[in-house]
Design a protein around this nucleic acid. Structure first.
Length: 903
RNA sequence: GGGCCGUUAGCUCAGCGGUGGAGCGUCCGCCUUACACGCGGAAGGCCGCAGGUUCGAAUCCUGCACGGCCCACCA
């Protein structure tokens, strides 16, 4: 069984995906074994299209944790699913319709929803297929959708329960209205953008046309709805005007001057026009002073009939015309450029219009308190903890949640109105404040208000905010409110992995709902990762054209490479600057692993007669490299487990990478070549055993990150190490015995590596041909070091490509015409007259000397400082002194070499 | 306006109290039969600025500058 020279991911990935599927590997077995549970629910991707790199990051991170816990002995369950995605998805469909010259109104509600369902089916298939390709160990048999029947039941139950507790109400409020999407939004669905605008100063004369007051505004079109001008009560400039009437420019209506604390005397002119119907601050001023509210901007963004001759104009047109008219009537006193932030829709980026309308709200204060308590009491932990404070602040200042949306795609609000006792035909629904609703799963048979049994009911036309169903997700995926076996077994979940951009939108609301309905946090930890940006740090977006399709990357580099590169950068809470270079590096690493295994398998017998066992290996038969690699491997396994436990996935990936490449491959495998070439079968076998076992163990450590290649190689390797698991997930996470740790071996090996390094450096810097086997003479050094170098001469010869090293007795250190390598107090003279460029060697040594001198300078600042000796710990002092001695020694040797050896 | 995060090698980022690190890129040499998706070597840093604490600071504290994110009803 020989492996290809380079790893070819495609066929391997396909093969294992179907093998896992066939085995039902990801569905937890309903066994009776009392293993700890590790349960994760996926942040359901919206059914708006295909997955992007952010999803790849999010799901790989979850998969890494789930696979790791599973290997560590937990019974794991990871639930897949998708989100109907409300406005976002409806917008996708409306775009499609537009391409066909249709609007949703052309289709009508039922037909439109049919098309949405059809689209959703396709989209789900795509998304789940992509998750599978990514290698996600999701239990696909438990797939959920936020708008399927089970989840719909949960939504209705939650609505009813909140209604019964008076935590849901319908009320007339100022809401954020997206003119383009035609719906209300919640406060956190509004994003703020700095945009260039203007500040217009407008003169409002007194009713008798004398003097008056100048107000500043960024929105002159709202003038049409002004019902007052407000000044600060402490403002002496305007005190005499309070209570007087002004004449509203252009319309001529009389409006009042009121005094209100909210007005900032220092801003603009200190006087504010008040438009209670179109500004949240003005709305409150209006409430305080009992001002009338005149809606001049309609839900379609056009000026209403109240706007007189401006009626019918768009907001933008009206603004322009009003400014012109003000100029014409000399009421416009000043016009200046002004940068300010405006609210825009998080789905379509068009400016939000604050409008008063009747909407459904959830009362949040009482729901937030238990969530805050859960955080404070440690029942819920956020990683990294830097997100805890913003989370807390948001919950502490929480406002009621507007949950009704005037779109079609979503959970219909389960409220019914009896047509026999409610008037819904003579006025717009969203103006009908006095409606008596019945909360019910289905159309009620009779009306509890008028007792009509005719069944003349109309359901509320609005749908719920998509985040309403999302907030129930960790419960609803298990069938809540039914007490299903799954709910009993898997709720609450263990950890939720998601990006910081939906911490409030989603995480906080799940906590609140979970606590409200079950008394327990729906997950005990949240792992918050960053956003995947492009190479130069810009957010990926279709309009920027910098979106990268994970499937394309996977096809080019392999799934394991993509996963590993993402994980290597996935520092908690930090954004990732994604570039193909990173994936290239990861792909190279994958290939390195492949070839390491190839090397190992080439050196193992065709078919194992008997599995190699480490237990039966006599510890005394192990040589330095063996003890060293086992020790390092033991340290690695411990390190990785600790980092994973702290959700430091990137750090764990880095550790494995370093071990595999820089220690196992560059040193152990190179040294293994010596013994694998020997005639002694016993020697060969002990080396084979360690090679196979350490490689196998490292594959296990890597498996959560690179499920495919590790599975493929494990399948080949396992007979040699006496394992029989069908899949790595069932093979256990390695826990090397503590007695493998061997500080002495690590120290001795470090010395060998240093010696090798110094000889290699001399060779390379003097351009000694790599193929040339040369001799060296070892002089100086402590007896221990000389003994070690002598003992491990076999290593040094191979690694530094030497022919031979001589250990002369006595102090005949004069070796003319030699290059000199220094390490650990020893000097390695490489006598090579005619080959070495001695000018070069002199320059090299002089540079070394400078280095040694600066080193001495630095350390002497410590060692010669009495304060250091007095205050620093004994260990520190000892180390520094040893370093100092070594540096002095080195300097002396260099000087000696420069003067003697080169002459 | 408040809060959080960042500012370290050309680029992307680790390090977070004891002589400045990795990956990529660059330069020099190598097809040393697992891997050129590789091997060996090297160059490259007033660790944003200014103070302070400490025997000692990239690391802790305080300011400042710049960048980014989150939150907030300056019209």
């Amino acid at each position: 069984m020989s492996l290809d020279k380079a790893y070819a991911p495609q066929s391997v990935e396909e093969r294992w995906i179907s093998a896992w599927k066939e085995a039902g590997l990801f569905s937890p077995k309903p066994d009776s074994v009392a293993a700890p549970k590790f349960v994760v629910v996926i942040p359901p991707p919206n059914v708006t299209g295909a997955l992007h790199l952010g999803h790849a990051l999010n799901n790989t991170l979850q998969d890494v944790l789930v696979r790791w816990r599973r290997m560590s002995g937990d019974k794991t369950c990871w639930i897949p699913g998708t989100d109907h995605g409300g406005i976002a998805t409806q917008n996708v469909m409306e775009k499609q319709l537009k391409a066909e010259n249709l609007s949703r109104h052309d289709l009508g509600r039922d037909k439109f929803l049919e098309r949405m369902q059809e689209w959703t089916r396709e989209c789900k298939k795509t998304i789940l297929g992509q998750l599978e390709k990514l290698g996600c160990s999701l239990d696909f048999s438990r797939e959920a959708f936020t708008m399927d029947e089970v989840r719909a039941r949960a939504v209705r139950a939650a609505f009813k329960a909140l209604w019964d507790k008076k935590l849901i109400y319908r009320g007339r409020r100022m809401v954020n209205w997206c003119v383009r999407c035609g719906t209300a939004l919640s406060d956190i669905e509004v994003e703020y953008e700095e945009r260039k605008g203007r500040l217009w100063h407008i003169h409002y004369p007194l009713a008798d046309n004398s003097e008056g007051v100048v107000v500043a505004t960024t929105r002159p079109e709202t003038l049409l709805g002004d019902t007052a001008v407000a000044v600060n009560p402490k403002d002496a400039r305007y005190a005499h005007l309070v209570g007087k009437k002004l004449r509203l420019p252009l319309l001529g209506r009389e409006i009042l001057v009121v005094a209100d604390e909210a007005v900032d005397m220092a801003f603009g002119t200190g006087a504010v026009k008040v438009t209670p119907a179109h500004d949240p601050a003005d709305f409150e001023i209006g409430e305080r002073h009992g001002l009338p509210s005149i809606a001049v901007i309609a839900f379609d963004g056009r000026i209403s009939a109240e706007g007189g001759l401006y009626a019918g104009l768009s907001r933008e047109q009206a603004r322009q015309k009003i400014v012109e008219d003000l100029k014409a009537s000399a009421l416009l006193r000043k016009e200046e450029d002004y940068k300010h932030s405006i609210g825009v829709c998080y789905r379509c980026a068009s400016p939000i219009e604050p409008l008063v309308s009747l909407q459904w709200f959830v009362r949040m204060k009482d729901l937030a308190r238990p969530a805050l308590d859960a955080l404070d009491g440690g029942r819920f932990v956020i990683h990294p903890k830097s997100w805890a404070k913003p989370y807390k602040d948001w919950l502490s200042g929480i406002k009621d949640w507007c949950v009704s949306r005037q779109i079609w795609w979503g959970h219909r609000i389960p409220v019914w109105y009896c047509l026999d006792c409610n008037d819904v035909s003579s006025r717009p629904f969203h103006q009908a404040e006095d409606l008596k609703g019945v909360v019910s799963d289905a159309k009620p048979a009779s009306c509890p208000y008028c007792c009509s049994t005719k069944g003349n009911f109309m359901q509320d036309p609005d749908v719920l905010d998509t985040w309403f169903s999302s907030s129930l997700w960790p419960m609803s995926v298990f069938g809540w409110p039914e007490k299903t076996p799954d709910f009993e077994a898997y709720y609450p979940t263990s950890v939720l992995v998601t990006g910081y951009e939906i911490l409030y939108l989603w995480v906080a609301r799940m906590q609140m709902m979970g606590l409200e309905f079950t008394g327990r946090p729906p997950f005990s930890s949240a792992v918050i990762h960053g956003i995947v940006r492009d190479k130069s740090g810009r957010k990926m977006s279709k309009s920027l054209g910098n979106v990268i399709d994970p499937l394309v990357v996977m096809a080019k580099f392999g799934t394991d490479a993509l996963r590993f590169s993402l994980m290597r950068d996935a520092r908690l809470g930090k954004d990732i600057h994604f570039s193909e270079d990173g994936v290239t590096g990861a792909r190279n690493f994958v290939n390195k692993i492949w070839n390491t295994a190839r090397f190992a398998l080439m050196n193992l017998p065709e078919r194992p007669e008997q599995a190699y066992s480490l237990e039966t290996l006599e510890r005394e038969s192990l040589e330095l490299a063996d003890r060293w690699i086992l020790s390092r491997y033991g340290a690695l396994a411990e390190d990785v487990a600790a980092k994973m436990g702290a959700y430091q996935v990137a750090e764990a990936a880095e550790s494995i990478y370093g071990f595999m490449w820089d220690e196992f491959c560059d040193w152990y495998v190179e040294l293994a070549k010596i013994r694998l070439g020997s005639q002694d079968e016993g020697e060969k076998d002990s080396c084979r055993a360690i090679l196979a076992h350490v490689l196998n163990g490292t594959l296990k450590l890597l498996h959560p990150f690179m499920p495919f290649i590790t599975e493929e190689l494990y399948a080949q390797l396992k007979p040699y190490v006496g394992e029989r698991a069908d899949f790595l997930l069932d093979a256990g996470f390695p826990v090397p015995p503590p007695q493998w740790r061997d500080a002495e071996a690590e120290e001795r090996m470090a010395a060998v590596m240093e010696i090798t390094g110094s000889i290699r450096a001399v060779r390379a810097q003097l351009n000694i041909p790599p193929g040339l086997r040369i001799r060296a003479v070892a002089v100086g050094g402590s007896p221990e070091m000389r003994a070690l170098a002598r003992e491990r001469m076999d290593y040094i010869l191979v690694l530094a490509r030497l022919e031979d090293v001589e250990f002369p007795v006595g102090s005949e250190e004069r070796r003319p015409q030699s290059a000199t390598a220094l390490a650990r107090g020893m000097t390695f003279l490489i006598p090579l007259a005619g080959i070495i460029d001695f000018t070069r060697e002199r320059a090299r040594l002089e540079k070394e000397l400078v280095k040694a001198e600066t080193e001495i300078e630095k350390i002497s600042a410590k060692v010669e400082n009495p304060n250091f000796l007095r205050h620093a710990g004994a260990d520190e002092v000892q180390t520094a002194q040893a370093q100092y001695r070594a540096a002095l020694e080195k300097k002396a040797r260099l000087k000696e070499t420069l003067s003697a050896v080169l002459n």
